[in-house]
Simulated scan of single mutants.
Amino acid sequence: MSPLARVAVAGAGAAAFALVLSACVPAAETAAPSAGSVSSSAAPSATASASPTASATPTPTPTRALPASCDGVYSAAMRSTLENEIAPLNDSEVTLLSTAQAPLLELLQTVPTLRCTWGGPGDRGLATNVSIVDTTQAATIRDALASAGFGCDDADGTTTCVIEQRGVSLEDRPYERGETQAISGDIWVSTSWINVNPDGYTQDILSTVGG
């Protein structure tokens, strides 16, 4: 089965991309971490002395709306490039996730997100999630990426973090894969790719959605 059509299961200690290189093309991305590591489910226990007037702080309502579909994610020029080089858009058999990092997989389940994939099941394609995050969530993303060994740069108000790996498949075919994670204001673009990484892809999304 091809790397774009598989999802490997790993625990909360899932290694960063750079550490999972093997003699074959690795499975797509890891699934959600084990229950024992899900920090989002841990809440302070109630006590008898708790004030009856205490209440949880409400989650801020996002001020930006995501595009209604992937049609609103790319500029016309980038859309043309993707259609010519990596079609189709959103093949239902592609199960590649946009990240292999357990904390980010958790977060993606709690924030407004639009998923877009390019390519069919095979050894070439990418998966992207475009999400809306608040400042606390953005800090969580940056911390997780730094801990996972991503190389990060800050420019013009955007933090872009990248990690890549190369290897040889069981069929002795070389491959490349990686992740690009970017945060600009309240927009988070999370992308995992295999054997294709279009120039300017992430920046195009940030410019189009944030425009």
Rank of each mutant, 00 (worst) to 15 (best):
A27Q: 01
A100C: 04
A139D: 05
P62W: 06
S34G: 15
P60L: 12
G178V: 03
D143Y: 04
S40F: 00
I183H: 05
S55G: 15
S92F: 06
G119H: 00
S37H: 10
R64S: 14
R124C: 03
G200M: 02
L82V: 04
S131D: 08
G11T: 08
V168Y: 00
S22D: 03
P26W: 04
T61R: 14
L4F: 01
W193A: 03
L97E: 02
P198F: 08
T191K: 02
S34K: 12
A76N: 03
D154W: 11
S40R: 14
Y201A: 02
A77M: 07
D91P: 13
P62D: 07
A155N: 13
D172E: 15
A65N: 15
T208N: 00
E29H: 02
S131V: 13
T81N: 12
Q165A: 02
A46I: 15
A18F: 04
T99R: 11
S37D: 15
A100F: 04
E171C: 05
A155K: 14
S92D: 08
T159R: 10
W193T: 04
L104N: 08
F150N: 10
V38T: 13
Y175T: 00
A32N: 11
D204T: 03
G211C: 02
A138E: 06
V73I: 03
A23M: 04
T110D: 14
S184G: 12
T208S: 05
S207L: 00
Q137P: 09
L170N: 09
R115M: 13
G149Q: 07
